[in-house]
Design a protein around this nucleic acid. Sequence first.
DNA 1: TATTAGCACTATCAGCTGATGAGTGCTAAT
DNA 2: ATTAGCACTCATCAGCTGATAGTGCTAATA
Lengths: 359, 359
Amino acid sequence: MSKTVQRLETKESIDERTQRVLRGIIEGYITSNEPVGSRSLSKTLEMGLSPATIRNIMSDLSDMGFLMQLHTSAGRIPTDKAYRFYVDQVVVANQLTRKLQKRIQEATQEGGMNQVEDLLISTTRLLAGLTQFVCLTSSPRVETSILRRIEFIRLSSQQILVVLVTRNGQVRNKIIATTEDLSQDFLNTVSSFLNEQFHNRSLHAIRQQILESMVEDKERYDRLLAQAVRLGKKAFELEDAPEVYIEGQHNLIFSERFRNLNSARGLMDAFEHKSMIMNLLDSTVEADGIQIFIGIENELESLQDCTMVKAQYSDQNNVLGTIGVIGPTNMDYQTVIPVVDFTARILSQTITQQSSSCD
Amino acid sequence: MSKTVQRLETKESIDERTQRVLRGIIEGYITSNEPVGSRSLSKTLEMGLSPATIRNIMSDLSDMGFLMQLHTSAGRIPTDKAYRFYVDQVVVANQLTRKLQKRIQEATQEGGMNQVEDLLISTTRLLAGLTQFVCLTSSPRVETSILRRIEFIRLSSQQILVVLVTRNGQVRNKIIATTEDLSQDFLNTVSSFLNEQFHNRSLHAIRQQILESMVEDKERYDRLLAQAVRLGKKAFELEDAPEVYIEGQHNLIFSERFRNLNSARGLMDAFEHKSMIMNLLDSTVEADGIQIFIGIENELESLQDCTMVKAQYSDQNNVLGTIGVIGPTNMDYQTVIPVVDFTARILSQTITQQSSSCD
DNA sequence: TATTAGCACTATCAGCTGATGAGTGCTAAT
DNA sequence: ATTAGCACTCATCAGCTGATAGTGCTAATA
């Protein structure tokens, strides 16, 4: 008999009243950042329940793994499981206030942002500012971007500057060394050749094809083709340096909301390793909407006291990168989730506009 | 009579023994980061002085403003004045260990650093790592850099990418909008015209001249000239965004050596305002060597518990920017000063090599 | 049977206490 | 001129205190 009761009390079937109490505790802890006790909860809930009754319910919730205590007499705080319940069951697609929407839109559209890099940096900073957490953004993987234009500029007899513009507006510069002195005229011919040949192909695909060309019979090459392949090879040998932008690290130290966090040091250290962060952001089941990792759901150990909320941004065709915030597990999900979501959408929109403005 | 004595005890004329004691206290505090008392000093000094004698000397030094106490019974610590004495009188041009020299050289010369930006960032990081302090670097003011090459690349009917390469290897990209659709061929003509016209001139001078051209009689212009002026104007309208690189901020929080610092928060906040930092670095009497600002010598209030050690770097002709570290006033000057000095020299050297490699 | 009041229990925190120790200043002796 | 000796001053720390805010359990109640 008691078994049945226990089954009934599993995730799906906590009775209404218990749910309301749990929700009250979670929201109480989110707003106050203090453990919540039965007495105060009895007041704020306004369900006409006495502290004693609430204690009983709390006790049950503790047994079910939704609540825990820091010390015997400290009031209770939600566990990661509770936040998961809260996010899945309680938080509904919440509308942002118009005011906030406007603020985000304005910030991303303000002038001088003709380069994707600038746009990403300022968006990252914006989100860090809005949430008062740490914000991370991965830039589009150059690998998969589509070539819009490539150009070679002769700097000296030994140096050539490669300028590479992708469809979504990223501009990459790279200086390559040559042994042979090539005239600017010749370089122009090479670049028009490459532009024609590889228009609208992904950088990855282009590199592949160039490598294949190289193993083909070399004698067939005229000078143009040979140099085109040689220069192209160097140009598309992109450092796949993972570009990540991080803003708001100081919140980790100074913000009151991170007070309970003991691994600030570990996180700061982790942020130094950009490739690890890159991985953190982009190792994602291809998901359309927003993704939330609460506490222990995070793989990275120093993140297990935090929640990461992230969303992908894209142009009209492809996912380009990820933007996310890292905050305390008792963050205000009701606000943070839509903020991240909306920001990612606006970001996608802005980038799409930019890349569609080419002929 | 007593007046004469006081005069004798001014900066220049502290007697040998007193100087040795002062030096002992300063060095003791630098190494231990603890106030130093008469007893322990009597041991480490090995001058055969009893603690009592040392106390007398200490008392004199306090009167002269070289020492102070945090509490009545806490031992003494040097004042800013003492550090100034130490830096001016005691620290002699110290040779770096070969090991350290090598490490700096290797770090700045490691591959893939074909862009000045990368070089600056990695040097900044290096210096932050070596000193365990915060390191700041200002990038060359684009204003004063010499034009090496300018190029226009047609992206679409409304967008043109400007690529601007300076003598010292900085590459700037900017996308400008046009109303008129200009062919790539035409753009090439414009850029060769501009390159010829303005070769080896400073960006600042170029902008001046373009503005002057504009007020001249407009009718004389042929189409090429008109467009060249129009595009040139947009191209050289550089955002004078002060570029500053900051590394090692986490040391401010986590390093034991910053323990006595109460204004970490203020400093972190200051670092957010890049233009202020830029000012801090570059507002410098044009000085050849290294510059040191100890405690209250710093204008910025939140810096007045710190020492800033900075040095300018340059190519063969001009000062380009400044690199500096911010640490506690009781930093190890004997090491830090030569490290900053040497790093700045190597930086200058590397940049000079790069800019001299053009034809 | 579900709820509640009452009570014993417990951990934390702020504030006080006295002991300890490092360091000073002064004075008298060398 | 130097030093030994001594009284004095604080900062720190451990240990104790009462107040507070929370719990769990039990017995009474609707």
